[in-house]
């Protein structure tokens, strides 16, 4: 990928800042999302909550479905490829969507390697639980990062943990003398050159969204106040009792995340949020965030 192309890809992510990216499984949902003010849609066959329920192998969505969704909206369309499945990514690039999410929500295709994203023209977003994971994905060519959270649970606790971890590690890096960076990078799995860049910038070198468990306007505003640049909502909208209102409410709360009165306004008369799952009592093999290397 040309340097210029990578820059354009990070800049598209910049234009999504302050916005909400919504998971949709059909044309009707895509249009609801766009109408509510989503900045992009993630085209999927099943939202994460249903992937959890159904089990089995979760793969890239049917290209016909992605194509139909792409033709039904004007906002950017994203779709997921399995971790390490570079041919799914090649197909998605050939489909000319706008962004690929190399996602732990799908069943990994490779338990050692992620996709070499530098071979692609199309931008990638990848999940991360900590600074090391984020910077390894960026080293592989990701143009945007998101927290992994724990998708399909409606429980924000893991997204909070991942964002706080990244913020803490960035703070540590910024305040340490430069001679300590090598061992910090070694112990935390940070590519050294990128560690130095983060130290200089005092944040990730690309846009960082929150994802995984965001179910309410308050969750969205919480992640924004923790320093995320925007929000992915998966099951939180179309598994709620009133998707249209929830979609709009989360868009409002994300834009006005620092204004409690506006977040309150967004939270009124909403109906029920999606049912939530307790993550602490969840067996390790059911947790998606551990996927990725």
């Amino acid at each position: 990928m040309a340097e210029n192309r990578y820059l354009l890809n990070t800049q598209l992510a910049q234009m999504l800042k302050g916005g909400v990216i919504m998971d949709v499984v059909n044309v009707e949902q895509a249009q609801i999302a766009q109408e509510a003010g989503a900045v992009a849609v993630m085209a999927l066959e099943r939202v994460p909550a249903d992937i959890r329920k159904h089990g089995g192998v979760a793969r890239m969505s049917d290209p016909d479905l992605i194509k139909a969704i792409k033709e039904s909206v004007t906002i950017p369309v994203m779709a997921k490829a399995r971790i390490g499945h570079f041919v799914e990514a090649q197909i998605l690039q050939a489909l000319k969507i706008d962004y690929i999410d190399e996602s732990e929500v799908l069943t990994p295709a490779d338990e050692e390697c992620h996709i070499d994203k530098t071979c692609f023209e199309i931008p990638f977003v990848c999940g991360a639980r900590n600074l090391g994971e984020a910077l390894r994905r960026i080293a592989e060519g990701a143009a945007m990062i998101r927290t992994k959270g724990e998708a399909g649970t409606g429980n924000v606790v893991e997204a909070v943990r991942h964002m706080r971890t990244m913020n803490r590690e960035i703070r540590q890096l910024v305040h340490m003398p430069v001679e300590e960076v090598v061992s910090f990078a070694k112990n935390n799995g940070l590519p050294y050159e990128l560690a130095l860049e983060v130290k200089k910038l005092n944040r990730l070198p690309v846009v960082n969204f929150a994802a995984g468990g965001i179910a309410t306007p308050a969750d969205a505003a919480l992640m924004m106040q923790l320093g995320c640049d925007g929000i992915f909502v998966g099951s939180g909208i179309f598994k709620s009792s009133d998707p249209v209102r929830h979609a709009l409410a989360i868009v409002k709360a994300t834009a006005y995340f620092n204004d409690p009165e506006k977040v309150l306004e967004a939270s009124l008369d909403l109906g029920d949020a999606m049912p939530g799952l307790d993550i602490a009592s969840m067996p390790a093999e059911e947790r998606l965030a551990g996927r990725g290397w």
Binding site: M15, G19, G37, V39
Partner: peptide
């Protein structure tokens, strides 16, 4: 940004 999103928020 996304004009549909901006339009929605400007209205609301």
């Amino acid at each position: 940004g996304e004009s549909t999103c901006l339009a929605r928020l400007l209205d609301i």
